[in-house]
Structure formats: structure tokens, C-alpha cells
Nucleic acid binder design. Structure first.
Length: 281
DNA sequence: GCCCAGGTATAAA
DNA sequence: TTTATACATGGG
């Protein structure tokens, strides 16, 4: 990928489309917020960051060359070309073409494993604005101070708390799930750091030993937190999304990018629902 | 007020 | 093994 230093940061020219709004607002993450001027700000690895599109590239503010290599290349998956991934999905599974083409410029972020696990526990039976609110209160209450905001609290920090002490989050029944996850991660019975490489079936099973973690949360953790792009096995999830439209999708053809494909289906499904709701009124 | 949200635990069939 | 219901809370 091409990039260059500019005053106040680094400008990147990703291989394949990279749309900030579509990437940050597609439901894969909950801690990036759009500002009035169209830039996005968030906290990654305990550090405040802001970025915005500038012509043919994207500017990462206050970014050094070291930061690019140690954080952003991984976080934005800049070594991958998402145009070619889209093509591979679409060619391998023509049924998915409509979903793939429903949105452009999404990249799967490499979020931190614990943050992803915790976030998607909170996401269950919940809506995105409220999920963001709960996570914001979680960080404000128990995160460490960092420049421009508070970091995501560690599992160790939360493991010593009781569900009752999470009351200020207004997370409802999910409070005890968060605590159970924090304790299992903290004590090492769920080893997130091994899950980057370990066989994915074992990872699933290990994650699901946590109360409040079922198939969906496990897959989301693996995809968004451990960057396992093959998460969300096609045979289970794709048919479920819009049963009839996507029936017959073959796991073989896009298996290694099933998780990415799922992201397109998720967006496509939301569009379809919006059209139905909008049509009724 | 009502419906529902990036689901899961639990009980019942 | 599959299907039904409760769950806390608040956005739209």
C-alpha cells in the first residue's frame, strides 16, 4: 500500500476502496464517532485517533511511521485488497453479488479481542445506539485515562467487580455475562491470545463456555476481535440471514472469507428491512 | 404506549 | 433435538 508523510500525520492510499462511514457504521465496532466535519474519532489501543478522507487518500492524524506499522496496518487490514476479496466472494457465490454490491469500501477491522468479546456480549438483543451508550459508560466508569478519552477496561479490571457494580452501565441482564467473561478471560480458562492461530472450532467451543456467549457472539468475537475472516461458517449463517435468497451458497468457494461475506449480507438485510418498514408508513 | 434490537439461557414439548 | 419465552433497557 502507498502512503506518505504529511504535516500532522500520514496519508494512506489503501489497495481497494476504503470508506470510513461504511466501515465504522456497519455494525462491526462501537467506539468510532463521526464529527460535524465528517471526520471520525475513536480510541484504539488506549490512544485517541482521528481520521478523515482527503481526496484520493485517508489522513490519519498525528500518526508516525512507527504507528502505521505497529497499529494501523493491522487495524485497518491494509495488507489486504478488499476489492479483490469482494470479487472472490461474488465470483465464488453469484447469489451473494447483490449483497456484496449493496455497499462499498467496508474493511474488517482488527479490534482487540477482549473489547470485541465484551462489546458483542453487550450487543445481544440490543440496538446499536444503545450498545454504544453502554460501552461508553463502561469505558468512562472503569477504563484508564488516555489522551482524549478513556480506554476500554481490561478483563482483569472488570473481573474483580460484581454484576451489581455494573449498574451505572444500565446493561440490564448482560451485566452478569460481562463479569463472567471478564473472570474467565482473566483467570485464563478462555485464552483469547491463543485464538489468532488455533483451530477455529476449538476457539468457538472455548468462547461458548462463557455465560451469555452463544454462536453469534462467538463468531463476532472471532471475526472482529481475532480477525478470523473465515468465521461465520457459510452453511449456518448465510442461509439464516435471508433464508430463501441465499440458499445453496457453497462453503467451499468463499470459506476463507465467509466472515467478510457475512458483513455484506448483514448490511443487505438491514437495507431490506428498512425498505419494508419505510414502505409501510 | 408500542415494537424491537448484530441473542442466549432456560424450560417445555 | 427443536420450539417457546423471559430477559433489562431505551431508541425510534
Amino acid at each position: 500500500m502507498e502512503w506518505k508523510k504529511i504535516s500532522g500525520g500520514i496519508k494512506i492510499f489503501p489497495d481497494g476502496a476504503f470508506d470510513l462511514k461504511n466501515t465504522f457504521d456497519c455494525g462491526q465496532c462501537f467506539r468510532w464517532n463521526e464529527r460535524e466535519d465528517g471526520s471520525y474519532e475513536g480510541i484504539v489501543r488506549g490512544r485517541y485517533a482521528r481520521l478523515y478522507r482527503d481526496g484520493d487518500g485517508i489522513v490519519i492524524e498525528n500518526c508516525t511511521e512507527d504507528d502505521l506499522g505497529s497499529v494501523w496496518l493491522d487495524y485497518f487490514d491494509l495488507r489486504n485488497d478488499y476489492d479483490s476479496i469482494r470479487k472472490e466472494i461474488s465470483d465464488g457465490c453469484p447469489q451473494l453479488t447483490c449483497a456484496v454490491e449493496s455497499i462499498d469500501g467496508i474493511r474488517i477491522l482488527a479490534q482487540e479481542p477482549w473489547e470485541a468479546l465484551c462489546s458483542f456480549i453487550i450487543s445481544q438483543n440490543n440496538n446499536i445506539p444503545r450498545i454504544k451508550g453502554i460501552i461508553e459508560r463502561l469505558c468512562a466508569s472503569f477504563g484508564d485515562e488516555s489522551d482524549g478519552g478513556r480506554s476500554f477496561p481490561t478483563a482483569q479490571r472488570l473481573a474483580v467487580l460484581s454484576p451489581e457494580e455494573l449498574a451505572p452501565l444500565r446493561a440490564g441482564f448482560r451485566a452478569r455475562y460481562i463479569i463472567d467473561a471478564a473472570r474467565k478471560v482473566s483467570e485464563g480458562s478462555v485464552r483469547l491470545d491463543k485464538m489468532y492461530e488455533a483451530p477455529i472450532d476449538g476457539c468457538r467451543r472455548e468462547l461458548m463456555t462463557i455465560t451469555g456467549v452463544g454462536q453469534k457472539v462467538a463468531e463476532c468475537t472471532l471475526l472482529y476481535g481475532l480477525h478470523r475472516l473465515e468465521a461465520f461458517p457459510v452453511d449456518v449463517w448465510m442461509k439464516k440471514a435471508l433464508s430463501d435468497n441465499f440458499a445453496g451458497v457453497s462453503p467451499d468457494s468463499i470459506g476463507r472469507y465467509a466472515g467478510v461475506a457475512q458483513q455484506y449480507i448483514f448490511h443487505y438485510s438491514r437495507l431490506a428491512e428498512g425498505a419494508v418498514k419505510g414502505g409501510k408508513k
